[in-house]
């Protein structure tokens, strides 16, 4: 049997977030961690691995992407560049 699908996240070094690198199949959580090491960190790519069962992830829907993220689209005033501060004002 191939087991459930796991998504794999690797921290490449201390101080950085775990980043999604791909997925794999494993019989259980512990095996998934071992497999993740073998599949994704054979060349010292990581100092820490997370695995999470893919069916435990709730995601936004690609079809609704536009509507879902629309609320931040028209709020230009959330960006510092929106504000007129003369160039000769230092440290800003």
């Amino acid at each position: 049997m191939e087991g459930p699908l796991y998504e794999v996240f690797v921290r490449s070094r201390r101080g950085l977030n775990h980043v999604h690198v791909g997925s794999l199949h494993a019989a259980d959580d512990a095996t998934a961690v071992r497999h993740a090491r073998d599949v994704y960190t054979r060349r010292n790519e990581g100092v820490s691995v997370w695995v999470v069962r893919a069916d435990a992830i709730t995601a936004s829907s690609p079809d609704e992407k536009d509507a879902f993220f629309a609320p931040s689209g028209d709020k230009v005033y959330r960006h510092p560049t929106f504000y007129d501060v003369p160039d000769d004002v230092p440290h800003m």
């Binding site: 019989a27 259980d28 959580d29 095996t31 961690v33 960190t41 820490s48």
Partner: peptide, 15 residues
């Protein structure tokens, strides 16, 4: 349930 993930730290798993 095959293994006991609780008893296997990834550090150990990673050698």
């Amino acid at each position: 349930m095959s293994a006991h993930p609780a008893r296997l730290t990834p550090a150990v798993a990673l050698g």
